[in-house]
Amino acid sequence: MNDLADPATGAPVARVVALHVHPVKSLGGIAVAEGRLGPCGLEDDRRWMVVDPDGRFLTQRQMPHMALVGVARGPGGLVLARAGLGAHAVARPPADGARRMVQVWKDSVPAVDAGDAAAAWLGAALGRPCRLVYLHDTGARPADPAFAPPGATVGFADGFAVLLASRDSLDALNRDLPAAVPMDRFRPNLVLEGAAPWAEDGWRLLAVGAALLRIVKPCSRCIVTTIDQQTAEIPDPREPLATLARTRRARGGVMFGQNAAVVRPGRIAVGDQVRLLEEGPSNLVPA
């Protein structure tokens, strides 16, 4: 079935129970009731990024306390906040602002700096020199062509425009864990419910609201999943990764959730049915 399939023909397999936008990579997220899925994912998701003075991206992998910086949408930009520092409004840099190349994984991407005031506030919040940058050029970073369809792009997310996760699969994982973990450890965009645990391994093309998503690969997980997103503490440095290593190890790492590319933009909302338009064998390829 091609990516212009009629969503009405698909069988309902789940429903959207939560939507999350993370405007600044590795800082706090925002729960939203609805949003538009564009080529780079949900509007505002991972369009901003914290970088070191050399332009290399910074994440909770190096600094778990990045989770303590809250983010809200503000008029023409963002409002950042951290306990003890109050709030700081940041204007979106102008589209004609000077570009600088910043590094996210192996990709060099042109971004616009948000200015010295934002850098000073974030430096105080994080305890190290850093800058805040914004991505205007949403077509500048192609998604991995080994997995994503031609023309798929990504913002400052690790690899793909959308990350979806199943609450049913999290429930199954939590039954195996010594202590349950919440969904925010995995920082998904779309949280679904109503399918059998791990059914998403066999999904290929989904209709969600007015949008179509192409599932491209399972999401390999890192130490960020060990970080309590409310406190920035690490209750158990082994979990949930150790359990995933026993139950969800595959080529490329240990997996939870599915990466997706947007093949038809459109609005989606909490409560939307998820319709399966194309399925296939499990994409959890044994290591």
Rank of each mutant, 00 (worst) to 15 (best):
M63L: 15
W105G: 02
S108R: 15
G76W: 14
D113R: 12
Q60D: 02
H65V: 15
G84K: 14
A95C: 06
P53Q: 00
G97M: 05
A95K: 04
R82T: 06
K106A: 08
P53I: 13
V90D: 14
W48N: 00
A81E: 12
R82E: 03
D107S: 10
V102G: 06
V112D: 05
D52S: 05
G77T: 07
L68E: 08
A87N: 00
P110M: 05
R82M: 06
A67I: 05
F57L: 04
A81I: 00
W48L: 00
M63Y: 08
G76K: 03
D52E: 02
A87T: 01
A91F: 09
A91P: 15
A89N: 02
A89M: 01
G70Y: 12
M49H: 10
Q103C: 06
G76S: 11
M66N: 03
A98V: 11
M101Q: 15
V102S: 03
H65M: 11
T59S: 06
A72L: 14
D107G: 06
S108C: 11
P93E: 04
A87S: 08
V50P: 13
P64V: 13
L68T: 02
V104K: 01
Q103R: 14
D54P: 05
G70L: 12
V102R: 05
R82I: 01
V50A: 05
F57H: 01
W48P: 01
G84D: 10
G84W: 12
V104E: 00
Q60T: 15
P110A: 02
P64C: 11
W48C: 00
R99D: 12
W48K: 01
G86E: 07
R61G: 13
V104Y: 02
F57M: 02
A98S: 14
V109G: 08
P93W: 12
H88V: 00
D96Q: 11
G97H: 09
M63I: 15
W105P: 04
A87W: 01
L85Q: 06
H65Y: 06
K106R: 11
G86P: 12
D96E: 15
L68W: 04
R61S: 07
H65T: 14
